[in-house]
């Protein structure tokens, strides 16, 4: 059991959790993730570790409610517990002195990019962050990103905050100076960033959100097409050279369980209270 010691709503549908996981807290490096399972009939899903506090023995996750598992998780709060948390998994981000770095976070991708942005800054890079959100109140972690970078630009689809438009619009303005680009967010966004930097051959890294089960290289379900090769996102990634990624395959494979996912979510929406009670009941027994 991994107790939740703190939970805060960052934006509608986006919640931050601080969870007791001392072993993982001691080991975590930027770019790594955990696999969690909330209760014993639950599925295993990957979530990036936003930060950790080795002294306190806690890790922090930021979760966007999309389907059943993330929605159920976001119903939980301080005093609840998660049955299984395994990690830290995946290769840590490669941190080098690149020079001028542009870090792009779309939606919950902002949380995933944050620790790497901080590490890039700590390594002596100049870090410019571009954050994208549909609208102002969906923007998360702006303050923390400001601390982890030298300058921040915000782009909203509706222009309710910062610039109006896409993160790639801002990227195009800055691209002349960039030595390195990190983009984490929805697949279409990452693909657009890859296309923007490709003609100039700027090193660009993306974090791939393929479907995972074990997270240890054992099932091959997370495989992604990189160049002419198949790679396992959980052990060879999740970060890859954006110009080598076949985003089409990623989108296609991520749609594999759409029917089942919708069925679960619909059921969850009708039985929200019971599902949450079940998790709490199970916790009480342990």
């Amino acid at each position: 059991m991994f107790p939740i010691v703190n939970a805060t709503l960052l934006a509608p549908g986006v919640k931050q959790f601080e969870i007791e996981a001392p072993r993982i807290a001691r080991k975590q490096q930027p770019g790594q993730f955990v696999i969690i399972r909330i209760h014993d009939a639950g599925e295993r899903i990957p979530l990036t570790i936003k930060s950790s506090d080795p002294k306190k023995g806690t890790i922090t996750l930021v979760v966007q409610a999309i389907g059943k598992t993330t929605s159920l998780l976001n119903e939980l709060g301080r005093g609840d517990a998660i049955l299984d948390v395994a990690g830290p998994l995946g290769k840590p981000s490669e941190i080098e002195k690149y020079g001028r770095c542009v870090v792009i976070g779309g939606g919950v991708g902002t949380a995933i990019a944050l620790p790497t942005a901080q590490a890039l800054k700590d390594a002596g890079n100049h870090v410019t962050a571009i954050l994208g959100a549909r609208t102002k109140n969906l923007l998360i972690l702006e303050k923390e990103v400001r601390e982890a970078s030298h300058e921040v630009f915000v782009m909203t689809d509706d222009g309710s905050y910062g610039g109006r438009g896409l993160v790639t619009d801002k990227l195009r303005e800055l691209i002349g100076e960039a030595d390195f680009v990190l983009a984490i967010g929805p697949v279409p966004m990452m693909r657009a960033v890859a296309e923007a930097t490709r003609p100039r051959a700027i090193k660009t890294v993306v974090s791939l959100n393929s479907i995972m089960v074990d997270g240890t290289g054992m099932c091959g379900g997370c495989r992604v097409a990189i160049g002419n090769e198949s790679k396992f996102a959980c052990v060879d990634g999740p970060e890859f050279d954006a110009h080598q990624v076949d985003f089409g395959v990623l989108m296609q494979r991520n749609a594999m369980y759409r029917d089942a996912e919708q069925q679960l979510l619909a059921h969850f929406k009708e039985h929200r209270a019971e599902e949450v009670a079940r998790v709490r009941g199970a916790c009480a027994h342990v």
């Binding site: 639950g42 599925e43 679960l264």
Partner: peptide, 12 residues
């Protein structure tokens, strides 16, 4: 993951 008991178990 007991997917043979989907949707009682969540893994598809």
């Amino acid at each position: 993951m007991r997917a043979y008991r989907f949707p009682d178990y969540d893994e598809p």
